[in-house]
Design a protein around this nucleic acid. Structure first.
Lengths: 260, 260
DNA sequence: TTGCTCCTCACGTCACGTGAGGTGGC
DNA sequence: TTGCTCCTCACGTCACGTGAGGTGGC
């Protein structure tokens, strides 16, 4: 009797095994299909019968799944081919590192965007898209250090000061546009005064940093004033501003406006 | 002529657009298939013709893809239904946080395992699986704080001290097994001396922490000595050890051995 | 006979990659 | 006529979820 009990191979039906392991029946079907865990037996009517060996193997499979390994890799490891498992694990780790930093990047971007949308007066899809365009352009023309510098200064200034600066830009551009349309000579004192304020605002944006000034200039040269200023400065107006700066004595190439 | 040029709608063929954006032709086909970006026109022979509006939209799509949004979500955002985009972005961010911590978990696990395999004498698949089993059991019975405590103490002890402790366990278990097989009465001084060393080693493992001692005990009670000690201690031997401890005067339930 | 468990297809997921086989414009 | 670009199927990816329709043992 003790002998008979010891000999009687315990078997599990698929539902039992699913309940015991927390896997789904479908998952076990899948493991069978791909040959990862083929039950040792079947009943006459085709029901799967898992032996103790099968069950142990299933626990091994689950343990390896805890490492995020693909089922195919798990199969190789358990089959013992593919030699040493450390190489596989190291590849897996490297892949995870890549995924991790990708996710970190996305998270950063999302946080910045959500922040910007919270501050925007109208958090619409349009605002979202234009904000993203600005970000993309910034990432293209500024180095990561410069971006960090810029965001640090914005943080220090605070939302009010930034809104104020944007307001000043708007007024300045409107004023300059009026003079331009009136055909005022760029060397006239009224225009020169506007040019001086322009330079001040640029200076405030760059924080006096020569690298940031150059990146800004590159952006305007490569994308043109229309694109770079997101439509706030036409190329004619940018040209008018440039002539005003040159008339003002600076013969180094003048600055277009910073994006607020 | 200037008028004609202004009127001439510029169009892009699919290959041009692919080169310009860095996407593949197949991706653009896909966007067309799912209705995300359907080109405004076709040539007589069926070639896709993208208008400037299409191109602008494509850049918007790419910008939103930079946030890791699904193409379906991008479609909703650009269509302007689904109201405010912030809710979507927040959901996206939450999903990324979850993925991120999942990846962090996997990375931690992998690092621990790789470490253990580096130290193991034979980094085979079998070693990998048993190490994983130990880890899983540990995670089941110890709290995260206790696990941190244990790994901290192991780190402080260093590899040599740990190997030494394992050696001592092996000798102790062999000695006790010999007495058990010889039928020595557990109250005999020789066995009592072994029981004392047993208690010392447990003490060294738990570091005197009562919580860890209880977790260890729970593990042995729930899984039995065979499982919990990974085959190093049979239930008969554990019972013999228990009787020795009781004979030694402790009438609180005795400790089975710690997994080295 | 009625639940319950089990079975085998087979489609869908997500964003395309990768051929296969064929046509159109220089 | 020869490249080159474009076209439309259509299968494959990864680990299953989710029915559909049917059978077997208490």
């Amino acid at each position: 009797m003790a002998m008979a009990e010891a000999m009687a191979e315990k078997v599990w039906r698929i539902g039992d095994l699913a309940r015991q392991t927390g896997l789904t029946v479908r998952a076990l079907h899948h493991y069978d299909e791909i040959g990862l865990l083929v039950p040792t037996g079947r009943t006459a009517s085709g029901h799967r019968l898992y032996s103790e060996t099968d069950v142990r193997k299933l626990y091994h499979i689950m343990a390896l799944r805890q490492l995020g390994l693909a089922l195919g890799d798990i199969g190789s490891v358990l089959a013992g081919n593919g030699s040493e498992p450390r190489a596989l694990l190291r590849r897996q780790l490297a892949a995870l590192e890549r995924q991790g930093s990708l996710i970190d990047d996305l998270r950063n971007r999302l946080t910045v965007i959500l922040d910007a949308l919270d501050k925007a007066c109208e958090p619409s899809a349009k605002t979202l898209v234009t904000t993203l365009e600005v970000m993309t352009r910034m990432e293209k023309f500024y180095t990561p250090e410069q971006l960090a510098q810029l965001s640090e200064r914005r943080r220090k200034l605070g939302d009010e000061a930034i809104a104020d600066a944007e307001q000043q830009w708007a007024e300045l551009i409107a004023g300059l546009d009026a003079e331009h349309k009136r055909g005022t000579d760029p060397s006239k004192p009224r225009v020169q005064e506007l040019a001086r304020r322009w330079k001040e605002l640029i200076e405030a944006f760059t924080g006096g940093d020569e690298g940031i000034r150059r990146s800004l200039q590159t952006m305007y040269e490569q994308e043109g004033p229309e694109q770079a200023s997101r439509g706030t400065v036409s190329s004619e107006l940018a040209d008018y501003a440039r002539r005003a700066h040159e008339a003002g004595g600076a013969n180094r190439r003048s600055q277009p406006p910073a994006a607020p």
